[in-house]
Design a binder for these strands. Structure first.
Length: 881
RNA sequence: GGGCGGUUAGCUCAGCCGGUAGAGCGCCUGCUUUACACGCAGGAUGUCGGCGGUUCGAACCCGUCACCGCCCACCA
């Protein structure tokens, strides 16, 4: 098949992807091979591919394809996450747009609606992953709410409950009034907002005056239950035990002591609202209030409701927090109880999904005893059972786990795993896999109703590394592929997901979920700003694929992924790697038009020609470097290594160096050898490049030869040190340097590009003479040296020095002698500067005595070389007169 | 208040175990050359954030300061 003149990525991508998928290319049968396993961070079913996915999945695909090429039983588990809140929001939003509300439906109807939506558009992101080239095991695609996975989720809940690691508790939670559900600490983001610091006066009941308190939330006084001062604060000693009459409600509350009150802050006295502030909750508990007694003045939508003692005036009922604040402040001011108001920036909690202010709210929820689960998770990283890359994240990991709080896992939503707990009329909970189990626990036929709540999405996704492999059944797949090898994720979900997988994996499998945790950064806009839809600075990966091809996008992601850094994505970079793909395409076209096809051997072919022996050695070096980089998860280094080899070594030099050998008048034996070697090297390039650029490489693999297998399952090249040939390397290295020197001289002296020159060589060793003979055709072609003479030259000439020899290129009449003098002077200056620097170092006794012997020897050697070079250049300059 | 990362060419970034500072893009000059102008050849460009220390030798190790970014944290 003749390779087209132009490379059109779109024309080949879809074709190869479906070919691979249809021929089981992603998961060939390799029952006896060493396993290699990665699980995808399951994208939300609601999602579409954004640039962060492109990065994350490109890195995973590189590792999986590399492992597959190395002959491993490579498994990339794929699936999607039901994403409770996000998905429910999407469907609700659609309903709202159609003039409907979720609450118009029964729970069952709504959930049915979500499933229908999932069937219809849940495939968007998986289709987009295919466009990226992700070689996932689609035949076993999972979903966090599919029956098997759900079974795992319920079992984990029930087992943790049986072990006392899940319990029900009434305490303050982060309540999202926008979504009407509790959320976990992690789902709260603190923002700084401009607010006010109100200084209030609470009248003492005995009429002896006031106590001043300061607050950013005056409206909560409607549910105040005490005023606290620090036990050692002498200003208030006399007041402790007195009571104050709260403004507005007239509630009588006590002045008590608590360590929480900071004498330095405000007046030193603080109002305590146990039902609406996390600190105050603790103070209230210490003061002897049971959770059930704490006054609650807000409903689920954060509107004021009557409290238990009924003391809130009707005028306040139904107000939003914001309106209540205005009303309370106005009432206080009118009563002369507002001392003063200061401007102040306040740390305010917002829901990360809803964007509304979070209220601490007193409810019954299910909690996971995260503290207990955290111990082994900390140990797993500390002991090295899990290697975190880059390592600097371990500190953040420890810090979070060391201070971990109980994890609230119940959500007041309809979409998700319904909590397997049944309550009787008294509120006693029976936790079991199903109602029958709960009933068995209850032991009689009393009425049981299942908990209305569902589980936090992250509770289920934490089970992904083993739940997707068949757990709780002890399947062969589970035994083979757990622990996974690597988990790749953005650092933004280190706590949400990675740490919880480690906790649950250790608890239920008794073994870490993965050996290596690789955390990558965020993809940012070219100016370093965070990409967001609201800023309108997002880059659509599919648009980039349309414009430059998936291969170019993937290569960009790999080349820019250096550990521990965010990526500033500039589209020009993608363009550059599209150019690289085109370069490869054209190299293959050149090969094809010169009778170079695919190779028939895995082993490097035997070669006599120096240029061929050299490129075989360079190939082996590249394989080594690439393997090393991939083993270290240095994606940038891996990408750059292949890039340099393909473009600079193979295209710029090797293909140019072999052109003479492929010509009509060339020796037939040498030509045949060169075709064989070139074909073999090109094959290795395609294999090495395949993890990064799967589409173009598969296309060229088949275009260059008839193959009995696809590239996706070809054999990774072996880094064979025997391929290294020092003599050949030196000869080609010499050739490259000589050509480079002559080209530079010609260009700087404005010698017409087509002009053919004779090289008069001085001081040439036997080796150089032999090389000049064997490389004559190359020099003629690449440096336009039509003949070599060992006679002295006459007239004006350009001169270049390579090793021991000086090459004099007569340019009588053409040359600008001044320009050549300047050029030589520059070369002399460079050589002498380095020579003198080395001489200085060698002249220091301290260096010679204390530096490593290797370093001293190297300095001596370099000094001799530089010194000789400077002398030769000076001699050349002298000859010019 | 803690913790982490960053500061290297005009831009974006590499630089491993301390031994003569690199790449891509951009810029300048030239070029129908057995593939490729999405290309070829050549070229210019650095107080490695500041200061101090360790060392024969520091972009790299240590200390410190400055600025930028991120994460965590209950100061009402």
């Amino acid at each position: 098949m003749t390779i087209d003149k132009t490379f059109d990525p779109a024309a080949i991508e879809a074709r190869w992807y479906s070919h691979w998928e249809n021929t089981n290319g992603f998961r060939p049968e390799r029952p006896d091979a060493e396993p290699f396993t990665i699980v995808i961070p399951p994208p939300n079913v609601t999602g579409s591919l954004h640039i962060g996915h492109a990065l994350d999945n490109t890195l995973q695909d590189i590792l999986v394809r590399h492992a597959r090429l190395k002959g491993k039983d490579a498994l990339w588990v794929v699936g999607t996450d039901h994403a409770g809140i996000a998905t429910q929001m999407v469907v609700e939003r659609q309903m709202n747009a159609a003039g409907e509300k979720r609450t118009d439906l029964t729970r069952e109807q709504f959930v049915e609606r979500v499933w229908a939506w999932k069937e219809e558009s849940g495939g968007t992101i998986t289709g987009q992953l295919r466009r990226l080239g992700a070689s996932c095991d689609w035949a076993n695609e999972r979903f966090t709410m599919d029956p098997g996975f759900s079974r795992a989720v319920l079992k984990v809940f029930v087992d943790l409950h049986a072990k006392g690691l899940i319990y029900r508790d009434k305490r303050l939670v982060n309540w999202d009034p926008g979504l009407g559900t509790a959320i976990s600490d992690l789902e709260v983001e603190t923002r700084e907002v401009q607010g006010k610091f109100y200084h209030l006066r609470y009248p003492l009941e005995d009429g002896s005056g006031f106590i001043a308190v300061a607050t950013t939330r005056p409206e909560t006084l409607l549910a105040d239950m005490m005023v606290a001062v620090h036990p050692t604060d002498e200003r208030y000693t006399a007041m402790v035990g007195k009571r104050v009459t709260l403004p507005i409600t007239g509630r009588s509350i006590a002045i008590g002591t608590d360590e929480h009150a900071d004498p330095e802050l405000g007046s030193g006295a603080v109002k305590i609202t146990p039902g609406h502030d996390f600190n105050d909750f603790e103070v209230g508990r210490r003061a002897g209030f049971a959770a059930g007694e704490m006054l609650n003045m807000l409903d689920a939508k954060a509107r004021v409701v009557q409290v238990a003692d009924g003391l809130i005036p009707d005028a306040y009922l139904g107000l939003s927090v914001k309106d209540a604040r205005v009303a309370v402040v106005a009432a206080l001011e009118e009563a002369g109880l507002l001392d003063r108001v200061e401007d102040r920036t306040i740390q305010t909690p917002y829901g990360d999904r809803s964007g509304v202010v979070i209220e601490p709210w007193l409810t019954d929820q299910w909690y996971v005893d995260a503290k207990t689960l955290a111990g082994p998770a900390i140990e797993a990283v500390r002991s090295g059972a899990i290697k975190v890359v880059p390592e600097s994240w371990t500190k953040t990991y420890y810090n979070w786990l060391d201070n971990i709080q109980p994890w609230c896992v119940s959500r007041q939503l309809w979409w998700g795993h319904r909590i397997p707990a049944w309550f009787d009329a008294e509120g006693t909970a029976f936790v079991a896999l199903d109602e029958a189990g709960a009933r068995a626990q209850a032991g009689d036929d009393r009425v049981l109703t299942q908990d209305e709540d569902v589980l936090d999405t992250w509770f289920s996704s934490a089970l992904w590394p083993f739940g997707t492999l068949g757990w709780p059944d002890e399947t062969a797949k589970l035994a083979k592929h757990y622990p996974n090898d690597v988990l790749i994720s953005g650092f933004d979900i280190l706590f949400f997901w990675d740490a919880r997988m480690i906790m649950q994996g250790l608890e239920f499998m008794g073994e870490v979920p993965f050996r290596t945790l690789y955390l990558h950064g965020l993809v940012r806009a070219p100016d370093g700003a965070k990409m967001s839809k609201s800023k309108g600075n997002t880059v659509d990966p599919l648009g980039l694929i349309d414009r430059y091809g998936a291969d170019a996008l993937r290569f960009t992601m790999a080349a820019m992924e250096s550990q521990g850094r965010d990526i500033k994505l500039d589209e020009r970079r993608v363009e550059g790697y599209r150019n690289f793909a085109t370069k490869l395409w054209n190299a293959a076209r050149f090969a094809q038009s010169n009778g170079i096809g695919g190779s028939t051997t895995l082993e490097p072919p035997r070669a006599e020609q120096a240029v061929n022996r050299w490129i075989l050695g360079e190939t082996a070096k590249t394989v080594q470097a690439l393997d090393l980089a991939l083993a270290d998860l240095r994606f940038d280094e891996a990408a750059n290594t292949v890039y340099q080899f393909v473009w600079a070594t193979f295209c710029d030099w090797y293909l140019e160096l072999i052109k003479p050998a492929l010509g009509a008048e060339a020796d037939a034996g040498a030509a045949a050898e060169t075709r064989t070697v070139a074909g073999w090297v090109l094959d290795q390039i395609l294999v090495m490049l395949h993890p990064f650029m799967p589409f173009i490489t598969e296309e060229l693999w088949h275009a260059l030869a008839t193959r009995d297998h696809d590239l996706i399952v070809a054999a990774w090249p072996m880094a064979d040190a025997r391929a290294m040939d020092p003599a050949a390397s030196q000869e080609i290295d010499w050739t490259i340097r000589l050509v480079g020197e002559i080209r530079a001289a010609r260009a700087e002296l404005n010698v017409p590009p087509g002009a053919k020159l004779v090289a008069h060589v001085r001081d040439a060793s036997e080796v150089t003479r032999a090389r000049l003979a064997s490389q004559a055709a190359v020099l003629a072609r690449l440096a336009r040296i039509e003949a070599v003479s060992f006679e002295p030259a006459v007239g004006g000439a350009a001169q270049v020095v390579v090793d021991e020899a000086t090459f004099v290129l007569p340019l009588d009449g053409v040359i600008d002698l001044e320009a050549e003098r300047a050029r030589l002077a520059k070369g002399i200056a460079v050589a002498e500067k380095e020579r003198d620097a080395l001489a200085g170092r060698l002249g220091s006794a301290a260096f010679v005595e204390r530096a490593k012997p290797d370093a001293v020897a190297k300095a001596r050697e370099d000094h001799a070389l530089r010194s000789a070079e400077a002398d030769r250049l000076r001699a050349a300059l002298a000859r010019l007169g």
